[in-house]
């Protein structure tokens, strides 16, 4: 099938002491917007890192666009967890976004004005134009996340992996990021997002992957995101917030 953009068979990965992922199987279709959910330590970040060869796979097969990651690299964009980089590095927001263009610019060449203009455009789209020349250490958490997203946008990839882009950001930033994700989906791009908040899964994602060391279930949100499956993923004791809505305090929107 031509619209399968990612196929994973029997993938396993481990850290020194324990296996984090075993027998992971799933296929992702083009143009889907997937939320990857699961408890802490379920291997969500590890899954993304293993797919992108930032963490070694023990076994299994990964096919991007019917070929290997190395060959499909150009089509894949990655937004790491915000905490994974040194925000004290002396550079500006515009500069970080320009990094998304480095491959297009070509190695050994310095970025030119047109590249800066393109990076600025992406910042503008994320509502960050006023902060283009601000040092990154002076940005708030939400603003840093927007910068990361802008950097992914200029990459102009076909498939995006995002590791918890909505953690620790304010409501306005969350809305801005979700608007961009929907827009990417509309443009036919495939997006996979590690997500924490079960309450917003149905609203945000058309596909959901329930992950706990292995894929518990993966598919269309309305089919897969059921009470039983969530209980299976989170170990049964989890009481899903949707269950007794009268007792739930909703966050301010």
């Amino acid at each position: 099938m031509r619209d399968i953009v990612l196929q994973v068979n029997h993938l396993a990965a481990a850290y020194r002491k324990n296996t984090v992922l075993h027998d992971v199987n799933f296929t992702v279709r083009a143009g889907s917007l997937t939320g990857i959910v699961g408890p802490n330590g379920a291997g969500k970040s590890t899954l993304i890192k293993t797919l992108l060869q930032l963490h070694p796979a023990l076994s299994g097969e990964i096919r991007f666009y019917q070929t290997t990651y190395q060959k499909a690299k150009d089509k894949i964009g990655y937004v790491p967890q915000r905490g994974s980089v040194d925000w004290d590095f002396p550079t500006t927001a515009l500069d970080v976004v320009t990094m998304g263009l480095y491959r297009k610019i070509g190695w050994l060449k310095w970025p030119r004005a047109k590249h800066k203009a393109k990076a600025y455009e992406a910042l503008e789209k994320m509502g960050m134009a006023d902060y283009a020349n601000r040092q990154i250490s002076q940005l708030s958490g939400g603003q840093q996340q927007r910068v990361f997203l802008a950097r992914a946008l200029v990459q102009d990839a076909d498939m995006y992996f995002m590791d918890e882009p909505l953690v620790g950001v304010d409501a306005a930033t969350e809305r801005a990021i979700m608007a961009i994700l929907k827009e990417l989906k509309k443009a036919g791009k495939t997006v996979l997002v590690v997500h924490h908040d079960l309450q917003t899964v149905s609203e945000y994602f058309d596909h959901v992957m329930l992950l706990n060391r292995t894929v518990i279930n993966y598919g269309k949100t309305e089919v897969v995101f059921t009470k039983e499956n969530i209980a299976k993923t989170y170990g049964g004791n989890m009481r899903w917030m949707g269950e007794e809505e009268q007792n739930v305090v909703h966050s301010v929107k």
């Binding site: 890192k49 992108l52 060869q53 930032l54 690299k73 894949i76 964009g77 990655y78 790491p80 994974s84 980089v85 040194d86 590095f89 550079t91 500069d95 970080v96 990094m99 998304g100 480095y102 491959r103 610019i105 190695w107 050994l108 310095w110 970025p111 950097r151 990459q155």
Partner: peptide, 21 residues
């Protein structure tokens, strides 16, 4: 010569690897 390569390598190694550095 490698100014921008050093920059992305030092700031975000994972990303650098992703873009083929």
């Amino acid at each position: 010569l490698l100014l921008k390569e050093w920059k992305v390598y030092l700031f975000d190694g994972g990303f650098a690897k992703g873009i083929g550095l």
